[in-house]
Every structure is written in structure tokens, then in C-alpha cells.
Design a protein around this nucleic acid. Structure first.
Lengths: 114, 114
DNA sequence: TCCCGTAGTTCTATTTTGTAGAACATTTCC
DNA sequence: GGAAATGTTCTACAAAATAGAACTACGGGA
């Protein structure tokens, strides 16, 4: 029961997609958002599993959309980020930033050690 | 055997620490580097497991340090990043950056949806 | 010499995350 | 009523994260 202190790699991505969709995000749309923004292909199962976990941790909240919208198909489940989710995102970003700080990978200045 | 396209969250951190240590990094020192930079406490087992995995993927290389150094204790195992590791780091960073692009979590401008 | 302390790495175990895709649900339109 | 469209849930499993005990190896003193 080791409580994690930082978001997983994919959790960050999904949570950011939720933020981007500004409350209008739902499974398929979130997947699209990620694919369009990053070119990264993801399965729908991966999206929901992650969303589910994020909800369990209180980082997102979901609510059922109106069933009868002007289209065919099942009702959407909309997701939005919570204050805790926002904090988690910032914490993860800051942590990574502090590790990146001062690093310049392009300049070939890697020290060699005998 | 689903080949992952991006580094895991902790893999990124460890790999960055390896870069920071500029070839002089080894297990305990890498742990210290992470803890000092981020305040994040990590077990030594976590460090080695990740380093091992990274090496298996060809993202770091390790070489045994001189056994008889001017100190007690076992010989160190030094790690340095590989060109592939550098690419992986950049890819992961860019992917996250593209998701963060345009987002401002501080400004309370989250849309509410009815 | 042998024990102790120090410095490091390995090993063992387990939980959490990440991943895919089939199955299932719900609504519209012919 | 059945097909097509749109979504979500379920099932399974691989990979990553995590902890800490065990083990290894050297130096220094009694």
C-alpha cells in the first residue's frame, strides 16, 4: 500500500488531456486529444483504466453526460480535474523540471570517465 | 512484449540523475542526487532496479569502478547515458511539453460544464 | 588475524501502472 | 427490427515502481 508521491508517466499525459478539454473531455475525445497532440497511439482501454485510477485517487471527477444528445450512441462520461489533481500535476512537473535544470543534452558536453 | 515508446516516470528521473553526475554516478550517489534535487526519498532497491532496466534497454551503460579506491567498501559501478538514452529523454520531454503547451494551471480559468 | 564499520550492490517480493482489445450498452436511422 | 455509430466496461497480462533485507568487499584497529 505504498502511497505514491508522483503521477505515473501516462497518468500525467491523461490528466493533462483532461485539463486541455476543459471539462468537456470524455474517453474517446481524450484519446483523440492525446493522439493529435503527441502522435502517440493509445488504446481506449488504457485511457479508461488510467482515468479510473485517477478518479480513485481523487485527481479527476466524472459525471454522466446527457444520454440523449443530438447523435447516436451511448451517453458520455465527462471528466474534469480536481484541485488535488492540479497539485499533483504541478508537483510532478516541478520535480522533473528540477532534474532537468542545468542540463543541455544537445551540447555534446558529456564528461568521460576513465 | 509491448515495446514502450516513452520512459516511465521514475526512469526519467534516474536517467536525468545519471546525466547530472556526468559519468561519475553510481547507485548511492545517484540516489543522493535525486534526493537532494527533488526532496524525493527513494529506496536503493528502486534505483538499481531502474538502472538495470535502463541498461537492458540500452539507455545507460555501466562499468565497474576501480575496486581499491581510497576508501573502504565494495567497488562502485558507474553509469553513463547512451545516445539512445539521450534520445529517449528528449522524446519524453517533448511529448510532455506538447501536452503542457498552452496550459496555465495557476490562473483559475477552468471551464465548468453543466 | 579477525572483527567491525563503512560503502556498495544484489536479491526477493509485492503493489501500481501501462497496455490492448473484445465485449457490451445505447441511441439513431433506415 | 437491424445495422451503424458512439461510448464505456471488462478481462488479462506485461512492465515499472518500490522497499528493505541480504550479501559483498575493503580498510583499519585491537
Amino acid at each position: 500500500m505504498t502511497k505514491r508521491k508522483f503521477l505515473g508517466e501516462f497518468e500525467q499525459v491523461v490528466l493533462l488531456a483532461v485539463v486541455r478539454m476543459a471539462g468537456k473531455g470524455y474517453g474517446l475525445a481524450i484519446r483523440r486529444e492525446i493522439e493529435e497532440n503527441t502522435g502517440r497511439g493509445v488504446s481506449i482501454g488504457a485511457i479508461y483504466a488510467t482515468l479510473e485510477r485517477l478518479e480513485g485517487k481523487g485527481f479527476v471527477v466524472s459525471r454522466a453526460g446527457k444520454a440523449t444528445a443530438q447523435r447516436g450512441g451511448r451517453a458520455r462520461r465527462h471528466f474534469s480535474i480536481s484541485p488535488d489533481g492540479r497539485n499533483a500535476l504541478v508537483r510532478s512537473r516541478d520535480m522533473l523540471d528540477s532534474m532537468w535544470d542545468g542540463i543541455d543534452l544537445e551540447s555534446d558536453a558529456e564528461a568521460e570517465v576513465a
